[in-house]
């Protein structure tokens, strides 16, 4: 199975209508793979993580509800971008809800650990 990882670079209105307020976060936080989303969070400052988390959490349930209309493995580009953005919330939550800092105190960075494949059906 080929992983679909490339989307056109984000454009104005790259998210579905109604989610414009999250547009500034797309470039950094809508990473194409689980591994990228993890790495982006690990490299971000706590202020950056919090600003994404605080902007996106209030829209998360609504975003998931919007995405429910599409088959998971065949979403339009703007919906895929929104999905990837929302999938960064669990990563941000590791910092905000678990560690209180960008990375666990006991963990090394950089490190040689990678998510080879993300959850399915996408594998990213």
């Amino acid at each position: 199975m080929r992983m679909q990882t490339s989307l056109p670079a984000s454009l104005p209105n790259s998210l579905p209508a109604g989610f414009e307020a999250l547009e500034p976060f797309v470039d950094y936080w809508a990473g194409a793979t689980n591994d990228i989303r993890w790495d982006r969070r690990a490299r971000a400052s706590m202020a950056e993580i919090r600003s994404f988390y605080e902007a996106a959490v209030p829209r998360a349930d609504e975003g998931l509800a919007y995405l429910e209309q599409f088959p998971l493995a065949a979403m339009p580009d703007d919906a895929t971008r929104l999905l990837r953005l929302l999938l960064s919330l669990p990563h941000a939550a590791m910092a905000v809800e678990f560690h209180g800092q960008p990375r666990a105190a006991a963990s090394p960075f950089p490190h040689g650990m990678h998510i080879g494949r993300g959850p399915w059906p996408q594998g990213w």
Partner: peptide
């Protein structure tokens, strides 16, 4: 569905976080 996918992302990043510790 997308909610299960969201939960799996949480599960996967929690596991990776634990492994990295």
């Amino acid at each position: 569905d997308v909610r299960q996918r969201f939960q799996q992302e949480h599960y996967s990043c929690r596991m990776a976080e634990i492994f990295l510790e």
